[in-house]
């Protein structure tokens, strides 16, 4: 659409713990950073009318979501003194207990990293065209509603 670089944030399947650990390790060379903040979204095994959620299947309007995420990224970098920010959102089937969202912000001082991380997660939930279908154990499903 425009000259902004659009980064991919989507991964098929869950965000693995090893991937998260590796992301943290990669920042060891960035020694101007004094604080990191990490948000991990995990699929919950909710009970709905006696049925348990066993997984969430995520789908997205990918092209629009990536453009929206670029705009959010730009806003967040304008508002907070961040060194870097990384966002990974899962697509496809993510089982209860697995990680579906990983937001990682780093800054010189903790407050920017913490506040930027919170702001980013809130905006992802409100603005990204992503949908979660909660799949029940056995059979059936319902569409997830964000609070």
């Amino acid at each position: 659409m425009d000259k902004k670089k659009v980064k991919n944030i989507f991964t098929e399947g869950p965000v693995e713990a090893a991937f998260i650990a590796d992301s943290i390790a990669k920042h060891a060379t960035k020694t101007s950073i004094g604080g990191h903040s990490i948000f991990l979204g995990q699929v919950r095994a909710d009970m709905v009318d006696g049925k348990q959620v066993e997984a969430i299947e995520y789908t997205s309007h990918v092209e629009m979501a990536l453009e929206t995420m670029s705009a959010i990224r730009e806003d967040i970098f304008a508002k907070y003194a961040l060194t870097c920010m990384h966002v990974h959102h899962s697509l496809g089937i993510i089982k209860a207990g697995e990680i579906c969202l990983f937001v990682f912000t780093s800054s010189k001082h903790r407050k920017d990293a913490i506040d930027a991380c919170t702001a980013c997660v809130e905006r992802i939930k409100a603005e990204l065209p992503v949908w979660g279908k909660e799949i029940f154990e056995g059979e059936g499903y319902q569409w997830k509603i964000n609070n």
């Binding site: 959102h89 939930k125 990204l128 065209p129 992503v130 949908w131 569409w143 509603i145 964000n146």
Partner: peptide, 10 residues
């Protein structure tokens, strides 16, 4: 043109 229900990512 996309027809989209309320978002529920994350």
């Amino acid at each position: 043109v996309a027809f989209m229900p309320p978002f529920s990512g994350g």
